[in-house]
Design a protein around this nucleic acid. Structure first.
Lengths: 233, 233
DNA sequence: TCTGGTAATATGTCTGCACATAATATCATG
DNA sequence: CATGATATTATGTGCAGACATATTACCAGA
């Protein structure tokens, strides 16, 4: 075997990945430390560090100070998926985008939601229901609560013309968020709005966002039947 | 304002994030180059680089050589979600894990799937259907095709005792993959296996994996009603 | 034997410098 | 004016060395 040199971090990363795949370094096993690898690969420790750090972010390695680096026992695959602005997603398909507000009124979220939001007693909310369309056909129905106490500007903004999501993205950036994806049968309301049969299988996204510890908004999005959220790894 | 120093990359990152949120640097706008920022923050350019690179990976900044760095116009949020081994997910909940093979036979995938797999004429496949259970109750029903030409070992492995996923993870690591998430109404077969009503809304994951350009496996997983896939950002 | 302090060690990160690379801006030339 | 070669520039990455920090291993003392 010709003694190849691995002089950039991507080459080092590829070689380490190869060794893991070839089970030269088996799952759960320790790998040599950065210094030794740097010498073997004929590069600086920083280069090895960069490569290993990347692989650890990808879930292939587990690293701990002093303890060293080991091959992940459960190579949890991490898929990064983009949560797009609906408008952008529709326009990227070359379709025309439409927005319509269906409902907008101040009210108090149900108890369970308040707890999830970690909201305070004094917080005021506005509920906004809207539908976004692609070439005129319903694409997603959105049921949202906005915390007026943390986002006072939202009170004037009635979301009549603009999606709350777009307004919030630019006016109330969030630092934390929880997302969950699941399937639901279309209720009569959802079916009516999306123009499908009651009971149809609907892909749903729940999302709650906070700015540090103050809740901003909670939203549930019902996508039209057949919608697929895609990504690659 | 006291002249704070930002001496580590996380502090730099926080400060840049703060300026974006505070709209000191508005969406679409260029920000100063790394050298200038390094001088302003009183640190090395590499430190600024690390911070900006991270923010760019997070989708908050867009960077191009020579062109410079600008605040992302559409702050596409990227959620990284873990694709866990089902066994681990179930055991982490403190439930007992079970696996049962329902079907295993060599056959040829339908035309459409073959095209998606980018498979060759000569490739042979085995189809495996199985169910994984949590505390005895059906958790996920899996319908899988394995390419025997690229994973010859899978021919002997009959997947009678072990989930194909676990076997493949350790024996046929993949380099690329496509994933999609969507909702589907339970067919009679699915309903029968998951023990739910026909037509119930089911959360489904489709996944195809390749080792470079050679397809390894294609799998569709039907999760029991009520399943939620969760992540936070 | 148990416990707490200390030394050893692997990773984490910063610095200052250098060169590579991609993309833009500029300018000469037809 | 259009075009293509060239200079300029911002990011990308490499290196060596240093110190920081978390964590383990070890040892002395009760």
């Amino acid at each position: 075997m010709t003694r190849r040199e691995f002089k950039n971090w991507q080459a080092v990363q590829d070689e380490v990945r190869r060794r893991i795949h070839a089970r030269i370094w088996a799952p759960g096993e320790m790998i040599p430390n950065e210094q030794d690898l740097a010498e073997e690969f004929g590069c600086a420790r920083a280069t090895v560090n960069r490569a290993l750090r990347n692989l650890s972010e990808a879930g292939l390695l587990e690293r701990r100070r002093k303890a060293g680096t080991r091959v992940a026992l459960h190579p949890v695959r991490k898929a990064t998926l983009n949560i797009p602005m609906i408008r952008k997603e529709i326009e990227d398909r070359g379709q025309s985008y439409g927005y319509e507000r269906l409902f907008c009124r101040r009210s108090t979220p149900p108890e369970a939601l308040l707890r999830q939001l970690k909201a305070r007693e004094s917080d005021n909310f506005v509920r906004v229901k809207s539908v976004q369309t692609a070439d005129g056909a319903p694409f997603v129905f959105e049921d949202r609560w906005v915390n007026l106490t943390t986002v006072p500007g939202a009170a004037e903004e009635a979301f009549a013309e603009m999606s709350a999501n777009e307004w919030l993205l630019t006016h109330a950036p969030y630092t934390e968020g929880d997302i969950s994806f699941f399937a639901m049968s279309a209720s009569e309301e959802v079916a009516g709005i999306l123009g499908c049969e009651t009971g149809a299988a609907i892909f749903v996204i729940d999302r709650i966002t906070w700015d540090h510890d103050r809740s901003i908004t909670s939203v549930r999005q019902y996508f039209r039947p057949g919608y697929r959220m895609e990504t690659s790894i």
